[in-house]
Write a protein that binds this DNA or RNA. Sequence first.
DNA 1: ATGAAAGCGCTAACAT
DNA 2: ATGTTAGCGCTTTCAT
Lengths: 340, 340
Amino acid sequence: MGRRRPDTPTLEEVAAHAGVGRGTVSRVINNAAGVKDSTRRSVQQAIAELGYVPNLAARSLAGRRTDAVALVLTEPDWRVFAEPFFSEIVRSLGDALTDTGMQLMLTLVRSDDERQRFLEYARGGRVDGVLLMSVHEGDRLPDMLAEARLPTVMLGRRSGDEYVSYVDADNVGGARSAVSHLLSQGRTVIATVTGPLDMYVARCRLRGYRDALALAGLNSDPSLVAESDFTEDSGRRAMAHLLERHPQIDGVLAASDTTAAGALRALRAAGRRVPEDVAVIGFDDFPLAERTEPPLTTVRQPLEEMGRAMIRLLLEDMEEPSVAYRHVILRTELVVRESA
Amino acid sequence: MGRRRPDTPTLEEVAAHAGVGRGTVSRVINNAAGVKDSTRRSVQQAIAELGYVPNLAARSLAGRRTDAVALVLTEPDWRVFAEPFFSEIVRSLGDALTDTGMQLMLTLVRSDDERQRFLEYARGGRVDGVLLMSVHEGDRLPDMLAEARLPTVMLGRRSGDEYVSYVDADNVGGARSAVSHLLSQGRTVIATVTGPLDMYVARCRLRGYRDALALAGLNSDPSLVAESDFTEDSGRRAMAHLLERHPQIDGVLAASDTTAAGALRALRAAGRRVPEDVAVIGFDDFPLAERTEPPLTTVRQPLEEMGRAMIRLLLEDMEEPSVAYRHVILRTELVVRESA
DNA sequence: ATGAAAGCGCTAACAT
DNA sequence: ATGTTAGCGCTTTCAT
């Protein structure tokens, strides 16, 4: 595990080469004010000539920033990678961070051992802040990070009373409006393929489904609810199962558009036409839902805004280490795509 | 961008608390030999009581390891994320790294600006080594890293004469054996859906396809070749296109199993039966190919071994910074899955 | 506007 | 076996 970084020029050598003190060089590389223009230029030239690159370890030891934030994925199931949702969020985080000059690094945490290791890494000062995504209910990592007073922001929450800062979408409202939409179309037997019910997000969407039915004065029949794990295949199986029990289903709320695509396949396999016989609405990942034939109506989450909001909360927390946790819940939008 | 790490106890405080010198504490946290058992225990207790966590910046400044390696994705197209290939490799890298106690961090590099930023990050000493994947032909990042003398290993190569260290699969051989297999089945009109031809891997597979035909004394017809970008949808389109020109196609080599799945859809849409009318063989990502109905024959790459080999090369390079570039090409395996 | 000097928290070489 | 000490390369006062 030996490491040798050879002959990297140091700030001191740059200073000597430029014939100035090292404080001056430091000011130049940090774009600090109060350096005569001519001095600045000669320092810059020395930097170029020597191929100087600041030693980041020394820099963060000496004080200020690390200029890196970690995005942690605590997901034993690697298939989330395949979700457009995931890549959209990562992209939006990357974009939002670009302006701040920070590096985004993705870290994968699967076991408790890795959880511990990451904690030490973060507490060791290798990152200025931590973003978390797809956190499951019992996961204590966010609390550990928060206790260590590391700026921490989650995407989504683990439960109804979450403390650690988070950004979430209005899942209940989204599901509610989707189901209300189905009802207003005259659909009467509406089923739902939920996500894994140990995830709060899945429970919220289920709640919205029930709320909408209740609002219409209908009882929700438990046998119209089938659980999936957000993958296309499990969505297909869940839908097939629902159809066996309730052949007369004419509307479906799916936990995600991947799941919706799966449901679509099951419906087709059973000879149903979509949306004529059965209308399907999925939560949220537009790329897939749009590529479906026909394009599915979806509850769209403002992924771009969610990423931006996460970065905003994180930066705020870094500026002034407050004791407050902050929460942002973003509105969802029903994107209707039926021609019918 | 201010950052304040509050009141973290230092090694010195631990030493005082335990009533020992700080050298001793350092030995204990680094599991160095030559510390009396009783001393070690009392230091460990002091560490626990104070909640001490080593400052990683100080550690790497003082010399040794960073204990982190970066996996860089230089991919403007985020859909690669969705490839099982990708997550399999990441998993295998993670596993291989676990034993060494190193952190793996994924970094996304899309623009030249980000390329430059990452270079400074790496040269700044934040990582001990760099792994690269999905590197396109003209990308200079690997050279820049190698010139900066950072241990660097790529997955795949950019061209036929690659210098920077890499691990690759025998793509030519794999494609050749796939097409030979089709020929031995009596298939006579064999098309191929290639990957993006600005990637060497795609060209290699195309070469294997041609080699096999030549070996059988056949000329390859350019109009039996259609390019895709490794996504399912582009595979579907490419296949549809091929079918228009050559309705009599009875065998297909697809660039990946995602592409193969797309090809399958196009074939079905055109009323062909697989594998009775048309046999499809895809390169490489078993999870998807197995979930296809019927399961597709594939050219399997030893992803697990590839990940391990990358880590091995990287560690070797870190141990003894050699001037040599090293290359490993792993054999592929044809996994036949037709019942026919 | 700029130089000098005091750390930041750790490792490793040198004493003992 | 353990204490002491000299840096690692930078930022940041504090002088000037």
